[in-house]
Nucleic acid binder design. Structure first.
Length: 705
DNA sequence: CGAAGAGTAGTTTTT
DNA sequence: CTACTCTTCG
């Protein structure tokens, strides 16, 4: 290893971190325990590559899983190196890189560059169409199965071969039609964003050479969360040169249900025999008691590389374990303790986080916090882009970009209502299927038949010509007949606008919104309050789109594709209100808080034990169960290691579940933390409260009696 | 065709 | 309890 003496590497790295940064002789695997400074290692390493090793920024690629992580890494890097030096650097999510790849290489895959990206709701819809059932659980199971196959790089043929149970065989059948449907719609799903680039890189030597010459150094964050497909992508991108750094922590692998496999850690050591393995065990986040509990807990798992976290941040206060009567009492109790703790610790609201296993637990908590006027923000949960009004507007944009996008067509055509309903769509759908046309194309053609009454056909034609008009104003993309637009008169307001010249996304958006009467429709259909809220969201979306288009100089089409990958979390990226954080355990990964409240730590919830698998052999199920418990344990581990100074765990003796109250046991994980007598007495929740807070608490208790 | 009403099923985690 | 689906009526 060449340790040049003159380099400007900052000294604030420990020996192991330094080793991880400096190792450039070959592949490098950094096992970074929670809070061990892994982001620092990655950013320092990028800075080192750029400044000391003459890597051109455009040849360095860093991949993360979330947009938030990518953003943070970008910010941190910019604090280290001059902006000019970092120009052209890629720090993005796997999915964003995949999107960029697909945009450039789409034609190799039989896709037009304006392909649509379907989200989970869209794809569930396809599955539903293809299966004659409304059983939602079943539909989701099939959707999930298809996704797992895709992530394992199995095509429909291969899936059919590996499927054994009747349920899997049916899923394989659906998979085949599903793939056909996507192609017909010129659409890809989330999994395709990674799968298709991988497949193309495998099959096409020229493309592979080109991309390998672009990527000279690759860094991968959260490596333990990669799936089989992502691992292949990594291998194909780095090629024989094998210059890369993977950073991960097998104890924090919590995405197996999504196809992630820690096998990839083992594969790395097998496929690259010269890989350097570096462990980061010093933790810069938590006090020792918290780390001891975390180490104890995770000791119950079998893992590849055992680590022991340590810190020099002092022993810290004892961990609190509090049993509660039920989930309602738990929420109220937490709310009161938050109030008290903020006062006693002279802390801010933002210093506290309440973490839970599943989203629905947030409801009671929200209510309790609101009652005590405690400000809070929720991360995880429903995305901004899942809201109906947002999907409505985006459907128009998707359709403008890609008129093969049938789900977008249906949504846009029927919202707001414009005389196109079930019967019209059914007839149109049938006709489109017969003629092998998209719904959009079929709307033009169906006039030549007598399948639809003139009235309904008129409604359709008005709609599609409207969309077509907008298409002509986007930059030469879309479904633009070269001979112009026969029979379509440009409305007066557009007189003088040449259809061949592209309009700015901002102008098209304004025109769209003005034309569809969306606001008016909202107020007609809904009560004043929700209508106002929804319209507010629409305006927010439009502002966001315009800003994004402006900043990154994106066309409307690029914008639409980009939007599919972004979630609500990044929307409010710049405001960080002083508020308590409510978050699922999954969404909390990578974050840290001075004081953490881990709620609902009960058998059945954490570890969460779903319904027993219907098919699969007995011993298979048993093993699967053991693996699931281990993943749940890691989830608990992630939760514990979010805490810097204090950790509070609570569980409920009873919990309202669906209809009736069920009796709960404390989670086995509490025992496994090995606290023994080193547990703080559950503090009197009433202590430290103002008389007024006490009163309101009593009132609440009575109200819920 | 579309809106309003009644009935019913539902609970894991997310790019 | 609520969010969504299916049904019925104008």
């Amino acid at each position: 290893m060449s340790l040049s003496q003159g380099h400007t590497l900052p000294a604030d790295l420990n020996a192991m971190q330094r080793q991880a940064v400096l190792h450039l002789d070959g592949p490098c695997l950094v096992l970074a325990g929670a809070g061990s400074g892994k982001t620092r290692v990655i950013t320092q390493k990028i800075a080192y590559l750029l400044r000391e090793c003459d890597y051109a920024a455009r040849n360095v690629v860093a991949l993360t899983f979330t947009n938030k992580a990518a953003r943070e890494m970008n910010v941190r890097l910019r604090q280290l190196v001059d902006g000019r030096l970092a120009k052209g650097l890629t720090i993005s999510t796997f999915h964003s890189l995949g999107l960029r790849f697909l945009r450039e290489e789409a034609t190799h895959l039989g896709l037009k560059p304006q392909f649509s990206i379907l989200d989970a709701t869209d794809t569930l819809g396809i599955v539903q169409e293809l299966m004659a059932t409304t059983d939602k659980a079943r539909l989701r199971a099939v959707q999930q199965t298809i996704s797992l196959w895709k992530n394992s790089l199995l095509d429909p043929d291969a899936a059919e071969r590996v499927a054994t149970t009747p349920s899997d065989l049916e899923a394989a059948r659906v998979y085949r039609s599903y793939a056909d449907t996507l192609l017909a719609w010129q659409a890809v799903d989330f999994d395709d964003l990674i799968r298709l680039p991988t497949v193309l890189l495998q099959q096409n030597d020229e493309v592979r050479r080109r991309w390998q010459s672009r990527v000279h150094y690759l860094l991968v964050d959260e490596y333990q969360d990669t799936n089989a497909c992502q691992y292949q992508l990594l291998r194909l991108l780095v090629g024989d040169r094998a210059m890369f750094t993977a950073v991960g922590d097998d104890d924090q692998a919590i995405y197996a249900w999504r196809g992630a496999t820690v096998d990839n850690l083992m594969k790395l050591t097998r496929d690259y025999s010269d890989v350097a393995v570096i462990k980061l065990e010093q933790n810069y986040r938590s006090v020792q008691r918290i780390l001891a509990a975390a180490n104890q807990l995770i000791g119950h798992n079998t893992n590849l590389f055992s680590k022991k976290l340590w810190s020099d941040l002092g022993v810290g206060e004892a961990i609190q374990i509090t049993p509660m009567e039920n989930d309602l009492a738990e929420a109220e109790n937490i709310a009161m303790r938050l109030s008290a703790a903020r006062f006693e610790r002279r802390a801010e609201w933002r210093d506290f986080a309440v973490l839970y296993r599943s989203n629905h637990q947030a409801r009671v908590l929200e209510q309790a916090l609101r009652n005590l006027r405690i400000p809070y923000v929720i991360s995880g949960g429903q995305s901004f882009f899942d809201k109906a009004e947002i999907r409505d507007i985006l459907a128009y944009l998707r359709l403008i970009a890609n008129d093969n996008d049938d789900p977008a067509f249906i949504r846009a055509a029927t919202t707001p209502r414009r005389g196109i309903g079930q019967t019209t769509l059914k007839a149109l759908g049938l006709f489109a299927q017969e003629q092998q046309l998209s719904l959009f194309e079929a709307a033009f053609e169906i006039g030549k038949t007598s399948l639809l009454p003139a009235r309904q056909h008129d409604s359709l034609l008005t709609f599609v010509t409207f969309i077509q008009r907008l298409q002509t104003r986007t930059a030469g993309h879309g479904h633009v007949p070269s001979e112009g637009l026969p029979g379509i008169a440009m409305p007066g307001e557009f007189a003088g606008v040449d259809g061949a010249v592209s309009d700015s996304p901002a102008r098209i958006l304004d025109d769209l919104l003005g034309s569809i009467r969306y606001e008016a429709w909202l107020y007609e259909t809904l009560d004043e309050k929700p209508a106002q809220k929804r319209w507010q969201n629409v305006l927010e979306l439009v502002e966001w789109l315009k800003r994004k288009a402006d900043e990154d100089e994106l066309t409307l089409l690029e914008l639409v594709q980009h939007v599919a990958l972004v979630t609500m979390l990044e929307r409010n990226e710049d405001d960080d209100p002083d508020a308590v954080r409510l978050s699922t355990l999954h969404a909390s990964k990578g974050l840290e808080y001075p004081h953490v409240y881990l709620v609902g730590v009960e058998e059945g919830l954490l570890p969460h034990l779903g319904h027993d698998e219907e098919d699969a052999g007995v011993e298979d199920t048993e093993q699967a169960l053991a693996l699931r418990i281990q993943e749940e344990r890691r989830l608990m581990y992630v939760g514990i290691t979010r805490a810097r100074r204090s950790l509070h765990i609570s569980w409920c003796r009873r919990r309202r579940r669906a209809r009736e109250d069920v009796v709960c046991q404390p989670s086995r994980f509490i025992e496994e933390m090995g606290l023994g007598a080193d547990v703080a007495e559950p503090d009197d929740a009433h202590a430290g409260l103002s008389p007024r807070a006490r009163l309101s608490m009593l009132k609440d208790l009575l109200a819920h009696k």
